[in-house]
Structures are given as C-alpha cells and as structure tokens.
C-alpha cells in the first residue's frame, strides 16, 4: 500500500475542503482498502466520511432520505425500506457477506469499482480502466462475467453492485456536495457507459461528495422484488440480476419499474422493456416480448452469450412472480 495521510471529516463541508487532486473519500473501506493494497488506487490522502449522516428519514411526500454513511445492513433492515421498497432490501442482502454489509456505506457501495479480473491484475494484464490507453485484455480473454449491453471497444467491465440495480429501478436521486456547492443528480445519470473513457465510472468531478440518496414516494415499489442469478447460492457476484416493481389492474400492466445488474458498465434501467409492458396484458407472451426488446441490442462476447438468454428468462420469471402469472412452464 502506498503511504497516505488520513483525515476524518466532521461534516460534508469539511470533507469537500479536505479533498484535493489525489484525495479519496473513505467509507467502510471494503473496496477501496482492497484496491489500495493492490496499488490500483494510490490516494495521497484519505478523507474518512463515515462521520457524515447515517440517518434514514422520511421526506414530506413519503419518500426516504438516506444519509451517505448509512451502512448497508442498516438500510436493509429499516422497516420503511422493507415495507415500501422491498426490492432494495432484497438487493442489499443479495450482495457481499453480512460482515461486509455491516461495514459498507451507501455511498461507498455506489462508488465501488468493477471486479473485472483484468482490472485487478495490475501485474499481468492490460486495462483501460486502470491505465487509460493501455488496451483491454478482457475483450478477447475470459469474459464470462462481462458486459453484454452498452460496452465499448475500450471496456467490457460490469458494475458489481446489487443495491444500485434497485436504486436505478426506484428513480432515486443522489445529493452531492462539491466545490461549487450542493446539487442533485438523477441516480440513472450518475454512472457512465465506458465509451472511450472507461477510467471514469461516474460523471462526478474531483472533490464531489455523495451526501445522501433520496427515494421518491413510489407506491408501485411496495410490490417489488430483486432476483440474482449467480454461480453459487450466496456470496458471489451476479451473472445477471433483475430488480422489478409491477402494477397490474384487471389483467393489464399499468406501471412497471425494471432494472438489470451484471450486464453493463452501469446499473441498467430497462426502459425499452418498461415501454413494451405498459398497457399490455400481463401474460408470459408480453413479458417475453418486453425482455426481448430490452436485450435486442445485446452484443455478447466469447464467453458470455448465455447472459442474453439468462437475462430474458430472469426478467420473465420475476415479472411472472410479481403478476402471479405462471411462466416458463411453471418452473420459475
């Protein structure tokens, strides 16, 4: 680990003041400390922001304001999250291990970096995310875990978070503090597709600090869930995951929120599928057509073509579960 100085920020203003060109904000450390040990991240200063708000408060309209330093466990166990946004609680407890969820903060979870093995392999692999311009060894390498949507010739990494898939589906807003004061950003606009700048995971500028995440009041989310498909039944990153909320009236889909994980450089809001579902009968045929519409643009790599079908079947299975419609031969 490269030497660094450590400061603890009492509040957001102090944190932003301490941030410099080579500073990083430190939450629970579950990803950043590991990356520093691998010398992939080499900050000169760590600004500990775990002293920032760890409160979850109800907003006027019936939404939730979640402080950036709220631990993952605390968010998943919160009564209003479990009742009003069950997909979020489910997504969080599908991720990592209990010990890591006890440490990890909400903002840290959002800003965690890809687990692409080539990104981590500083000694032996080329990676445009780690060293811009170096090349990508994943594109022609072992890319079973990699992206099928929105990738670029420069990067095929995926965003590893489960929690973020739910936040993408829930129309969350991110509260930011930075050199120019405070501002808000739709969560969907926070993470980037790789393009030719895969070293930039998000649109945040140096010094920008996430201070809170706001969930809007969203009655549809009370009937929502999260399903994660992975190589073992616990403590593994997603091959594919689906966050979904569905409203059906008289057999017709009246509203839906849908997002995918494990398929792209960012949590993937499935807008095309949402459009294909709204106003249509809540049947397996509709669900299949919607899933197919979302995955039509998929560009699989050597080892991950299975994800294209897996993502569609998982979407159909989850929609069937929420609509209480038998799908996939009832075996879902």
């Amino acid at each position: 680990m490269t030497p660094f100085s450590y400061v603890r920020a009492a509040d957001a203003d102090a944190a932003v003041r301490h941030s410099g060109v080579d500073a990083k904000y430190l939450g629970g450390g579950t990803n950043l400390v590991d990356l520093m040990r691998e010398t992939i991240e080499r900050p000169g200063t760590l600004v500990d922001v775990t002293g920032l708000s760890a409160e979850i408060t109800e907003t006027d309209g019936g939404g939730l304001l979640i402080g950036a330093a709220v631990r993952n466990t605390a968010l998943a166990e919160h009564g209003l999250v479990r009742r009003r946004y069950p997909m979020l609680a489910r997504a969080i407890v599908a991720g990592a291990s209990p010990q890591i969820r006890n440490m990890a903060t909400v903002a840290g979870n959002i800003l965690q970096r890809t687990r692409c093995a080539y990104f981590y392999d500083r000694a032996g692999s080329r990676c445009n995310k780690r060293e811009p311009g170096q090349g990508c060894d994943a594109i022609d390498g072992f890319n079973r875990m990699h992206a099928i949507l929105g990738a670029s010739p420069a990067c095929v990494a995926t965003h590893p978070s489960d929690m973020c898939v739910a936040l993408a589906a829930l129309d969350a807003t991110v509260h930011l503090s930075g050199a120019d004061g405070e501002r808000r950003l739709p969560f969907a606009d926070l993470h980037r597709l790789p393009g030719d700048e895969p070293d930039r995971d998000t649109v945040l500028q140096p010094g920008d600090l996430i201070t809170a995440v706001e969930l809007p009041p969203l009655p549809i989310a009370a009937r929502s869930t999260y399903r994660k498909v992975r190589d073992r039944s616990s403590y593994a990153f997603a091959l594919v995951s689906v966050a979904a909320a569905l409203s059906v009236e008289n057999g017709t889909v009246t509203d839906v929120r849908l997002a995918l994980g494990g398929v792209a450089h960012k949590p993937w809001r499935a807008s095309k599928a949402e459009q294909a579902l709204c106003g249509q009968p809540a049947t397996e045929a509709t669900f299949r057509a919607a899933a197919a519409a979302e995955l039509a643009a998929a560009e699989p790599l050597r080892d991950n073509a299975f994800k294209v079908e897996l993502a569609q079947r998982t979407m159909v299975a989850v929609l069937g579960e929420l609509a209480e419609v038998e799908v996939l031969g009832g075996g879902a």
Binding site: L26, V33, L46, D48, N102, M103
Partner: peptide
Amino acid sequence: GQRILSCLALAVQ
C-alpha cells in the same frame, strides 16, 4: 457487537 472483516478495516477508522 457487530461482526466485521478486520483485514479490510484500517485501524485508525
């Protein structure tokens, strides 16, 4: 009382 991973924890925190 809460379980954590001490390998990913910087002691100063």
